[in-house]
Amino acid sequence: MIFFQTHEIEAWINEDAPLVDLTSHLLGVEEQPSELTIRTRHTTRLTMMEEAARIFEILGAKVVHCAQSGHDVESGAIIFQAVGRADVLHRGWKVAMNLLEYLCGVATLTANMVKQVEAVRQIPLLVTRKHIPGMKKAMTKAILNGGAHPHRLGLSETILVFDNHLNVIGGRETLNHKIPAMQAAACEKKISVECDTYAQALQAANAGADMIQFDKVPVDELIEWNLNLKQQFPTVKVLIAGGVNPDNVQDYAKSGVDGIVLSSVYHAKPADLGVNIQRLSD
């Protein structure tokens, strides 16, 4: 479970209405009892529902219905209802809607791509940390609710050697002594090296890398490279990253790799949700 602190949610609210909802104030609807309802307009994988509920609770509304994150709902389903003062519901409306539309879009695309992969093989869909700064928690919850896994939650978590590291330390040949030293120092971690060619992967595996992460390799080449690597280095894991999208994810799943790394789900089309606020009897 991803936990959001109250001050984080309060900051979302304060960003949109730091002082007063001027429209509601001038219309004189502050104390009018009202009901807010959110419906889906297409099949949607839900996420961030609990945080949407906390937005309205912090503002003083009462949540009467909140569908659970991680579940699929059909078009027209009521996913959320809250009652309270009209100004409270209007103040929370766009904050909650923006959160739900963007992130349910991510969760829905993630769920669809996970289904495509699982139809072929049981390997993980691993989502990178290429999210907008400040959105790590929300994006991570969205991809988890979509059925994927985080690739790297941060630089402190895993060891992945890129070309830019190699440029600084003197090239790929230095891996022959760098990898054993790294494995000794971080004995509980796996060492992964990004590679663009089979020759680079072979060199990294010979140097002792635990994992090869290929970048932007066509499927036909990847199938051959993966097979050859696994024959020579049975314990080495192989990942593919770069350019993976809904149109080619199944082809990459068929290549024999151990996992698929992508960030394209962060660019999902937002979910289409509808909000209605109605006056209740005084």
Results as ranks from 00 to 15, higher is better:
Gln68Met: 10
His90Pro: 00
Thr140Val: 05
Asp220Lys: 11
Leu89Met: 03
Leu239Thr: 10
Glu188Trp: 08
His42Met: 12
Ala96Leu: 04
Cys104Arg: 04
His90Leu: 14
Pro133Tyr: 12
Lys94His: 09
Gln81Leu: 04
Met139His: 03
Leu153Ala: 13
Ala107Gly: 05
Val275Lys: 03
Pro33Arg: 06
Met49Val: 09
Lys216Ser: 15
Asn206Ala: 14
Lys94Asn: 14
Ala11Gly: 07
Leu227Thr: 14
Ile240Lys: 02
Phe56Arg: 06
Leu144Ile: 15
Met1His: 14
Arg54Trp: 07
Asp16Lys: 01
Glu173Lys: 13
Ala201Thr: 10
Glu51Gln: 15
Gln213Ile: 05
Glu224Ala: 13
Lys189Trp: 11
Leu239Glu: 15
Val20Glu: 11
Val63Thr: 08
Thr37His: 02
Ile79Phe: 11
Val29Asp: 06
Ser69Asn: 00
Ile9Ala: 08
Glu118Leu: 11
Phe162Gln: 09
Leu26Ile: 10
Gly84Ala: 08
Asn228Trp: 12
Thr40Phe: 00
Ala138Gly: 02
Thr47Trp: 07
Lys130Pro: 00
Leu125Pro: 11
Val161Glu: 04
Ser24Asn: 12
Val193Leu: 00
Val64Leu: 08
Lys237Asp: 12
Val117Cys: 04
Val244His: 01
Glu224Pro: 00
Phe80Ile: 00
Pro150Gln: 09
Glu57Lys: 08
Met135Gly: 05
Ile277Tyr: 00
Asn226His: 13
Met48Ile: 09
Ile123Ser: 06
His151Thr: 03
Gln5Ser: 12
Gly242Val: 00
Asn276Gly: 02
Ser192His: 10
Ile169Ser: 03
Val168Lys: 11
Leu125Lys: 11
